[in-house]
Design a binder for these strands. Structure first.
Length: 843
RNA sequence: GCGGGCGUGGCGGAACUGGCAGACGCGCUGGAUUUAGGUUCCAGUGGGGAAACUCGUGGAGGUUCGAGUCCUCUCGCCCGCACCA
């Protein structure tokens, strides 16, 4: 056999073309074959691929190829999340059209993905900016509207000055900055479109428990984000300007109705609509307005941090506490958020740290109503139902579980969250018609409209007569016009040809909606579309969705822990309720891959520390790059890029190549393995095959690769140390085949070349069945036992693998070093761990 | 403040359910081949010690015949959430 050098570039180009021509990775639905849907988050076509892409898609490719070899019908698609702001920014900068920029980038990225040898079914590719794709996004919008899940309302929304558009709550991250451009987000009062994701809040929370294949971290983040609180709504009657009960009520949400007797003031958010109504023209107006203005000046960062000083002003008005009829003063304060609950709060300073701080600052009473079991006040107040004490000798509030005091008929009951007292007070309120059990969520509805051009047009029409009218289904799609001059910053709102229309209901002149949809709406359903990507009759067929969905393995970045993953879960649940799919959850298993860094920092053009994957491919080939990035670290951990290691992986591939070339000709005789070195190699072959299989299934690609290195080391040692005429050629060839099969998911091009051209098989290695292994052959017939005396290793002894305990014990005690150590001592205990060690306790 | 994660050689990492800590790779040292270097191959490579041994998984305790792994406390770093009533 003539030994050719390993030439990754020639091999990779050759097989990429061949696979394309053979349609090797095209997949069709086959009800007789068990399916696996392996999916990586589709990329935004930002230009050149980066190492994060290489890592993400290499992980997915190994998993996809592995399951194909395991006989599954594998769906492994790719596409582009192609609407979005970077295209507009690039267009403004370089005077190209966003479409031109986007499609050019997609072509570039697709070429890179092909050079990486990823096993995608290219026939199912989607691009979210294609009309054939986004028309279905519009269709979904209409269906959501029909189901009452679309709403247009005015409220205080997040405005990103950098992106010049509004953002959903989920898209404001960290300290109140835009997820995309990191500008500090501002609040604006605007009328916007929403998807009512809050209708699904409970189910989105509950079903997290069913996602056993998701990282705890992601589930915790989603649960926190949804933020369910149990408590009660309590109605307070508002007094009129002269302080008399006036009939109007203000409702608050509280998790602690048991503390209602300790409510010594009442708070409104500065943005609350009642604030100006109550104070306008009164002596309190100036002080209240000062608080309102000061709050408006606070940035989101300051307000959210909890560090902003608590400001307040009395409105001059009172409410009636429903449990005791007391008049409670109404204040305005910046620590009350309009977005949460009702924008109004009953303040109980003895039981809430914030209320306590506020009460101390403004000299408001702090009557104790729940006392800790060991509180000295308890002996004095334990059975006192009436208010006798109006302040506490404490430095901070007591928010824990305790005993209710000064609480009328409820005195003596257990107080706290989800307590006897909490339920009793709420039931009493309910019987009086002044309150009710209630659940409150932190999750807000999803603001989906964007004041940008490069997105999916919202299919709605504003008619001066009929109001909001959906675009009729048969008039879809609303095509995004090409001739908007984006370089001048134009949007659809600057384009009369687009927005001038007629009302579908009354036929009169009307204005088309000019906002586009959040790009996250496009990415919330693409995995359904892959099931039936070329269907032009429907979003997808139920049959195909039932075959493929849910996605068995989803792979992507942790940055979407809430955003994309929450939205997609929401869409799937609505689809299920629409009868489009049986799946109520889109992604059965989730792997969140770590970031690829350089010298501890994220790679970025501005830092000038970007390592270009294309350069690495050019030097070492795609196979070495793929295998190396998986070898560097477990997939969910961040990794720091290191060029030297890549060279090491290239060396390893070269060694595999040479070994297979060297031994490929040894196939004529059956495997004999009758002598010790051959048996040892055969054992290693079975052990490693088992380990690599196990490791792939638990995403331990780094240890899978190191096991392959061990097999190669054992094989080359055998080849080198055993004489030519004593070597088991059939065994060597088998090891070569096993190695080729095991490495195929990682280095698909090299494996294919070795399999077909060197080992001489007619078909693709990637259609071959996965390596089998035999536990019995992997087991050694002799094992080395470690002997410990008083916890320290004192000797080793080789015994038969199936030796009984007494034999092992005997052998261990007879090891010279061991016998020496225990001489003159009493052996008190001997622990025998079969196959591992013997521990002797002597003294 | 609450929730989650992580601390192992010069570096990346391994040790899955408590059982020889440091697999595998990088780097380094020495050697062989070629010799111009590189490639390739062999040997070595946690610290201390000539050796027997001994010390070693952020730190301090504990459980156990035996702890990187379990428990308690503690230090450091990272991430998420946070005036959510």
């Amino acid at each position: 056999m003539s030994n050719r050098p390993y030439d990754p570039h020639a091999i990779e180009e050759k097989w990429q073309a061949a696979w394309d021509a053979e349609g090797l990775y095209s997949v069709t639905e086959d009800p007789d074959k068990p399916k696996k849907y392996i999916l990586e988050m589709f990329p935004y076509p930002s230009g050149d691929i980066h190492m994060g892409h290489v890592r993400n898609y290499s992980i997915g490719d190994v998993v996809a190829r592995y399951w194909t070899m395991r006989g599954r019908n594998v769906l492994h698609p790719i596409g582009w999340d192609a609407f979005g702001l970077p295209a507009e920014n690039a267009a403004i900068k370089s005077s190209t059209h966003p479409a031109e920029w986007t499609y050019a980038n997609i072509d570039k990225q697709a070429a890179s993905f092909k050079r990486m040898g990823f096993s995608y079914d290219w026939d199912r590719t989607v691009k979210s900016c294609d009309v054939d794709y986004y028309r279905w996004g519009q269709w979904i919008f209409l269906k959501f509207w029909e189901r009452g899940l679309v709403e247009r309302k005015k409220s205080a929304v997040n405005w990103c000055p950098g992106c010049k558009t509004v953002l959903a709550n989920e898209q404001v991250i960290g300290d109140g900055v835009c997820w995309r451009c990191k500008s500090v987000v501002e609040k604006r009062d605007l009328e916007q479109w929403y998807f009512k994701i809050t209708d699904y809040a409970q189910e989105l929370l509950d079903d997290l428990d069913t996602l056993t294949g998701w990282p705890e971290r992601v589930k915790t983040m989603q649960a926190n984000w949804i933020g369910r609180s149990e408590g009660a709504e309590v109605d307070f009657e508002l007094c009129n300007a002269s302080g008399e009960p006036g009939g109007e009520t203000i409702t608050v949400f509280t998790t602690r109705p048991d503390t209602l007797f300790g409510c010594s003031f009442f708070l409104l958010a500065p943005e609350h609509p009642l604030v100006s109504t109550l104070t306008e023209g009164t002596a309190h107006a100036d002080a209240v307005q000062a608080v309102v203005r000061a709050t408006a000046r606070e940035t989101a960062v300051e307000r959210a941090s909890g560090e902003a000083e608590k400001l307040g002003a009395f409105t001059g008005r009172y409410v009636i506490n429903p449990v005791n009829g007391e008049k409670v003063p109404v204040w305005v304060s910046n620590y009350v958020l309009m977005e949460y609950g009702t924008g109004a709060v009953m303040a109980v300073p003895c039981g809430d740290e914030r209320d306590f701080e506020f009460a101390r600052k403004y000299g408001l009473p702090i009557p104790p109503v729940v006392l800790a079991a060991d509180d000295p006040l308890l002996s004095e107040l334990g059975t006192v139902a009436d208010r006798v004490m109006d302040d506490v000798p404490w430095d901070e509030a007591f928010a824990g579980d305790g005993v209710m005091v000064q609480s009328g008929a409820f005195t003596g009951m257990a107080g706290g969250k989800d307590s006897e007292g909490m339920r009793a007070v709420t039931e009493w309120l309910a019987s009086e018609g002044r309150g009710r059990f209630s659940v409150n969520f932190r999750l807000r509805d999803w603001l989906i409209s964007r004041q940008r051009y490069w997105g999916n047009p919202i299919p709605a029409i504003h008619c001066p007569v009929c109001g909001l009218v959906p675009v009729p289904e048969d008039q879809l799609p609303v095509v995004l016009p090409k001739d908007v001059d984006i370089t001048k910053g134009e949007t659809l709102a600057d384009h009369p040809e687009f927005y001038e229309t007629t009302c579908p209901a009354c036929g009169g002149a009307a204005r088309r909606e000019t906002d586009t949809m959040d790009t996250f709406t496009c990415s919330s359903w693409y995995y359904f579309r892959y099931c039936d990507a070329r269907n032009d009759e429907a979003l997808f067929s139920r049959e195909n969705a039932d075959y493929w969905m849910p996605v068995d393995q989803y792979i992507g970045g942790i940055e979407h822990a809430i955003l994309h993953l929450l939205y997609s879960r929401f869409f799937t649940k609505v689809f299920a309720d629409m009868g489009l799919t049986a799946a109520r959850e889109p992604f059965t298993n989730l792997l969140t891959q770590g970031m690829v860094k350089k010298d501890g920092e994220t790679m970025s053009k501005s830092k000038g520390n970007v390592v270009a994957p294309e350069d690495m491919i050019a030097r070492y080939g795609a196979d070495a790059l793929r295998a190396f990035i998986l070898f560097m670290a477990p997939p969910d951990k961040d990794l720091d890029w290191n060029q030297d290691g890549l060279e090491g992986m290239y060396r390893f591939l070269n060694r595999v190549w040479r070994y297979v070339e060297d031994v490929a000709g040894g196939g004529a005789t059956p495997v004999d393995a009758s002598d010790d070195p051959a048996r040892a190699l055969l054992r290693e072959r079975h052990r490693v095959a088992g380990k690599v299989t196990e490791d792939i299934e638990r995403f331990s690609f780094n240890t899978a690769l190191s096991a392959m290195m061990e097999l190669l080391n054992a094989a080359t040692d055998y080849h080198r140390t055993v004489d030519d005429d004593a070597r088991d050629g059939a065994l060597e060839r088998e090891v070569a085949e096993v190695l080729t099969l095991l490495i195929a998911p990682y280095a698909p091009h090299m494996a294919e070349e070795l399999w077909r051209e060197v080992l001489g098989h007619p078909g693709s290695v990637h259609r071959e069945a996965w390596v089998t292994f035999d536990e019995a052959l992997a087991a050694a017939d002799e094992v080395e036992i470690v002997v410990q005396v008083n916890g320290k290793v004192r000797g080793k002894v080789v015994v038969a693998a199936d030796a009984d305990e007494a034999t092992v014990r005997e052998a261990a005690l007879n090891v010279p070093r061991v016998a020496e150590q225990i001489e003159g001592l009493t052996v008190r205990k001997v622990v025998v761990v079969p196959g591992k060690l013997v521990s002797v306790v002597a003294g």
